[in-house]
């Protein structure tokens, strides 16, 4: 009976709204592709510039397809700066910081969202408050401290600096809040302690939040420029973003190389995005919890 009704429903639906559907789909596609073009256009410009001679990058009128393709630009970026080493450093920093960030902030967020302790609100306000302070303001005191610890010009300095940012705690806390307390209470009655609850219930449920925190932290560290600028001085610890700046000299700038290097450095992050996409989009649908 139920099945029959459903089938009929679908048939009716198809007949009455197929035209409307087609129209709707076309509209969506039109809007999305127009939008995509705007999104992509600057990258096409970068791509085109990366194949040009330096002197032609800003030449007017602009040509989208260069007269001759300077493939050599993509070779030059590896030779003019130690791009491979810089990439390795960047990957290393991004992975370690992201990992620590995920671990510690989801841990702390659980306490903020689901456990009661004295000073919780005040502490949380401290966390939120520091998000509101621009880094440029306290980077000098921070640098002086790091120097006293003898950590400047090491990767450890940046790792310590960026692995415990309050943003991660905030993001995870907001997500945990939407997980019903009844679920945890039931688990407590079943005899699970808080650590078990965290590992067995919260972590598996928070895949989407973890995925989006991963993306956020990874992209931040990947593209961070001021941090590495302030803390890293020798070439063996420098990152891609610092390398990009080496193409801008006092009286000249190699924008074709900057574009080439920027495009190359985009690839790993995009791969990460594609790999994680299913987590923050599909992971939650089954749990019925949202962030």
């Amino acid at each position: 009976m139920m099945k029959m009704l459903n089938l009929n429903d679908i048939k009716n639906y198809r007949i009455s709204s197929s035209w409307k559907n087609v129209f709707k789909k076309t509209l969506i596609y039109a809007v999305l592709s127009a939008g995509s073009l705007i999104m992509i256009l600057p990258f096409l410009w970068m791509l085109s510039a990366s194949f040009k001679l330096e002197k032609d990058v800003f030449r007017y009128p602009f040509t989208w397809i260069p007269e001759t393709f300077q493939w050599i630009n993509y070779m030059k970026i590896w030779k003019k700066i130690p791009f491979l080493l810089f990439s390795f450093n960047t990957i290393k920093l991004s992975v370690i910081i992201t990992f620590l960030q995920l671990l510690t902030s989801s841990f702390a967020a659980y306490a903020f969202a689901k456990l009661k302790f004295r000073g919780r609100n005040f502490l949380f306000l401290c966390y939120i408050g520091t998000i509101a302070i621009p880094w440029q303001v306290y980077m000098v005191p921070q640098y002086i401290m790091m120097r006293h610890l003898g950590l400047n010009d090491t990767h450890l300095s940046l790792i310590l600096l960026q692995a415990f940012t309050p943003f991660g705690v905030f993001l995870m806390r907001q997500f945990y809040l939407s997980i019903p307390n009844e679920l945890l209470d039931a688990a407590r009655i079943d005899g699970l302690n808080e650590y078990q609850i965290y590992f067995k219930i919260m972590l598996p449920l928070s895949k989407p939040a973890l995925a989006s925190l991963t993306i956020f932290t990874f992209v931040f560290v990947w593209n961070d420029f001021m941090g590495p600028l302030i803390y890293f001085t020798s070439d063996k610890v420098k990152t891609i973003q610092l390398g990009l700046r080496m193409f801008i000299q006092q009286y000249s700038a190699d924008y074709s190389l900057i574009m080439a290097a920027s495009l190359v450095s985009l690839i790993p992050v995009l791969i990460l995005f594609l790999a994680l996409q299913r987590f923050f989009i599909e992971g939650i649908a089954t749990t019925g919890v949202k962030g």
Binding site: F107, C126, Y138, M145, F164
Partner: peptide, 28 residues
């Protein structure tokens, strides 16, 4: 219970307090 809560907080809080909170307070 409180100890448990603090143990969840601690790994993040130590890093946060030392490397962010103290410089922030100093800067302000």
């Amino acid at each position: 219970k409180r100890l448990v809560a603090y143990s969840f907080l601690l790994p993040n809080f130590i890093g946060f307090a030392v490397f962010t909170l103290i410089p922030v307070v100093f800067a302000l």
